[in-house]
Design a protein around this nucleic acid. Structure first.
Lengths: 244, 244
DNA sequence: AAGATTGATTCTTTCGAAAATCCTTCTAGC
DNA sequence: GCTAGAAGGATTTTCGAAAGAATCAATCTT
């Protein structure tokens, strides 16, 4: 039997049907998910042989995917020494967070100036979807499955994205996505651990206030709240980083 | 005679001696230079076979280099349809310019707050180096060679980089570099063409004013001048884009 | 004549192996 | 005992070819 080569369409079009994905794309997507999800520890070398076995791909698509991830600062590389997961450091996290604040606040400013009815509707919808999922999990006693965690994750992303989606700048949105991934990687470890004592936090309330200020077109207030939201998260992450 | 394979060190260490560059690195550097320099026209497909012949490399390093350039928006790619030089459009240029203004103004703000004596010295030195080179060329009648143009280019970059180098944020500096490359590509065609009539411009004076405000730590004024500097360039580029 | 189908060609994408380099360990010399 | 150097193994990087997909043109059908 001739060995069937894994091809772009053979792998992906089964499910999507619409978009053609190359193996580079799938490698990129999977690697990104696993790095953000903490499957590979920060600083850990990413041996090509290991990745090859894990994802069932050849070197070429893996290397290309790693190159893309490098430009997002999720992986590092030294010439002739291969790739490794970007290490954790408080300084790097703060740089990512502050850059994110700069980018997303500017994007929010423009979105507030340009947003229409559909924009408002999408924000409200995303907010409710996120809240529903969060509450549904909070009332249960069993810990969330990986899939459920991923869903919350996505809803969280959708909400923040809905705020700025109409800002009109492809570059700002692209940057926001990359910085989201970077900071999310730092947030991940704190999700499983307990919250630091003495700092109760109502994330849902923070989201509501951001949404209210945005829909009321109170630009200055919305920006201030959004920045505070991200910095508060960063402070908590930093505390849990130090605790280790 | 066994064919000697082109290796990283064999190619580059002859000159640099210090750093090891892989073929991917050289491919990236050369392609980037040629795309910015306008060797390949905007929108032009980048056939791998052509690149292979031009740079004397195999597919793998070329593809990886193109992947990196894609994340800088210098090249585009569609699945199974290969790579092409990012096309020109006024909207894209303005997005790049406005993002650059956002990033560099923030970086300049921080640099002014953090800059020390060495920072000031480097700015002054870069300013003089740029001015010397520009004046030397202006007094001549013969048009500048490609090498001289490249030197001016580099000096120009050095000056703007010197302003913000101490801002303390790797991400902002990285973004500034990428956006510089992107906008430089648009500026390139206007260099050879004549300047639009009726708009005499003293770039050297603009640079001096930016430098003076920066060294005087007049944050608001420095930022305003820098932003105006970039937007003025963009306006001229736009005019020459429309002219075609 | 317009549209669909087939076939040839061009190009991208993927693979696996070979070459080059790095890293560890072992040996020899002092 | 300790350092320098060399051999061996592990890993990355590069190559060339093979496979798959898109494009273009010609033919056939309606």
């Amino acid at each position: 039997m001739p060995p069937r080569r894994l091809t772009a369409t053979a792998v992906e079009n089964d499910r999507t049907g619409s978009e053609t994905l190359t193996l580079v794309d799938t490698a990129y997507r999977d690697l990104r998910r696993d790095i953000i999800g903490g499957v590979f520890a920060p600083g850990q070398p990413l041996r090509l042989e290991v990745l090859r076995a894990r994802y069932g791909l050849s070197f070429s698509p893996l290397r290309e995917a790693l190159n893309r991830l490098q430009s997002e600062r999720l992986v590092q590389s030294a010439p002739l020494r291969g790739f490794s997961v970007a290490p954790f450091s408080a300084a790097q996290m703060w740089d990512a967070v502050e850059t994110r604040v700069l980018v997303e606040c500017e994007a929010l400013r423009r979105a507030i100036a340009a947003g229409d009815d559909a924009w408002e509707a999408r924000i409200v919808a995303a907010f409710h979807a996120l809240n529903l999922k969060t509450k549904r999990l909070a009332t249960r006693t069993t810990p969330p499955t990986a899939e459920e965690a991923q869903e919350i994750e996505t809803s969280h992303y959708e909400f923040h994205r809905a705020l700025i989606d109409v800002c009109g700048s492809p570059r700002l949105l692209d940057l926001a996505d990359k910085l989201y991934a970077e900071t999310e990687r730092y947030r991940q470890p704190t999700l499983t651990g307990r919250t630091p004592k003495g700092t109760p936090r109502d994330v849902a309330l923070e989201h509501r206030e951001i949404m209210d200020a945005t829909l009321a077109r109170e630009e200055a207030r919305a920006i201030e709240l959004l920045a505070a939201h991200y910095r508060r998260t960063a402070t908590l992450v930093e505390a849990s980083l130090d605790a280790k």
